[in-house]
Amino acid sequence: MSLLNLNRIGKNEDSEREKMVPCLPENKAMANAMLADQLPSPHHTIVTTGDCEKPKPNPATVSCRKFWPRRLGYTVYIDILTTIVFFVIFVSIELGVIPQRKLGFRCKDPTISFPYTGDTITLTILLLGTYLGPLIFIVLIEIVREKSFKDVRIGIIWDHYKELLIGVSFVIMITEVAKAMLGEHRPHFFDVCRPDANEGCAEGVFVVDYTCTNKEYSSWLISDASKSFPSGHSSISVFASLFTAYVIQTRLPSAATGRLFKHFLISICLSWGILCSLSRIADRRHHWWDVLSGTVLGILGVIFFTTIFHQKQKCKLQRTSEKSISSTMLLDVKNKTAASARV
């Protein structure tokens, strides 16, 4: 048989094999090697097609793509846009653009007669602990997993942090809507508002029509004095702490750090949520049932979002395993064919 005929046979076999195997460089090399083993001529000819040929990637580009994804999917932009919309609604409610329901009170009510002493954990500290703290933990976890900063993939960090951002926005939205629709006077309501109807009325009389007379505080703080239910500090901090603890538990390998260190990090996260919640009661900024409702809201939110996120990661792992199995099966076919040809 001439070499030309052998090349024709090789092209026909290669065309049939392309229909069965995806046109990948490594699969093409395996298929050509299988064909070469079956040729009876001592001069083996490896046939390749130009369609599958790809230039060798630049090593610098490969390492850069491993660290930073080539492009973000359109769903990422939708998530970012949704988060911005949530933030705008949150600011509108806080600034009074979206009006809240005006609540009445009972004269001389001792539960809302505490002095206003400020916040142990301010809004700035809360936001830093909610947004910056989990990001630091997620990055450190990935560095420990990869044992090198260069091998850390931004895509994985973004997947986890994106879910945190969406979850926090979801919890904030529910909290703010509940504050505007339901609301409740804070324990320091009388001290901040100083309603005119509270001076001459009898104890226990319910007052609906009143006007706040305190000029020492801003209008925002006076309006905020009637937004006690539920506790936003509790719902946000509990969600962020539990979600970060979930990431630590699922992503941080115990073999690299030991179980004690992992539990230590988880305890730090949980302590943050507990500290923020209890400080609201100690500062007389919330009633205990406000803090409890905020904690429950944060727990329900983290259960919902971690369940969805875990299912997403499971599907990604399953698709990766299927691709790996396909490559392994192709390699097994090649080895069996080569062994039978030698026999």
Results as ranks from 00 to 15, higher is better:
P230Q: 02
I308C: 01
Q318I: 00
A240S: 14
K150S: 12
L95S: 15
K336F: 14
I125R: 14
T111K: 06
Q318A: 08
L252C: 05
K227W: 03
G10F: 04
L252G: 05
C23F: 07
T257Q: 01
I84M: 07
Y116G: 00
L221T: 01
L24C: 14
F189D: 06
L132N: 07
K19V: 05
W220R: 15
Y74T: 15
T175Q: 00
T295R: 11
S219T: 15
L4W: 08
P59I: 11
I121E: 02
S41N: 13
K102E: 12
L35C: 10
S63L: 15
F264A: 14
L132D: 07
Y77K: 12
M173G: 10
K102A: 13
A178Y: 00
R17K: 10
A225I: 14
I266Y: 02
L140T: 03
A255F: 05
R65F: 05
L221R: 06
V85L: 06
R194M: 13
G10E: 02
T328W: 10
I98V: 14
H263Q: 03
S228L: 07
S237E: 08
H44G: 13
S92G: 13
I98P: 03
P230F: 01
T122G: 02
R8N: 11
I141Y: 00
L103I: 10
G273N: 03
I143G: 02
S231E: 05
G200Q: 12
H43N: 14
H286R: 04
T83K: 05
C193A: 08
G96L: 08
I222L: 12
H233A: 06
S219K: 13
W272K: 04
S324Q: 12
N58C: 08
A29P: 01
I156Y: 01
R280G: 02
L265F: 01
E203W: 04
V47C: 07
S2D: 12
T111E: 12
L182E: 10
E184N: 13
H160Q: 11
R251C: 05
L103K: 09
L6K: 13
C212H: 09
C23W: 09
D209P: 02
G204E: 06
L164A: 06
L35I: 14
G129D: 03
G118R: 00
I46Y: 11
I93A: 11
E184P: 02
G183Y: 06
I222G: 03
K11Q: 12
K11I: 15
I308A: 03
G155L: 09
F189Y: 12
E203D: 03
R70K: 09
R65G: 06
F105H: 07
T75I: 05
S219H: 09
Y77P: 09
E142Q: 08
R284D: 12
C269Y: 01
R319E: 15
V85E: 03
T117M: 03
D119Y: 00
G118A: 00
N214I: 04
F114Y: 01
L221N: 02
F67H: 14
I299H: 09
S92R: 04
L165W: 06
M34W: 04
M30V: 15
E26N: 14
T61K: 15
K316N: 09
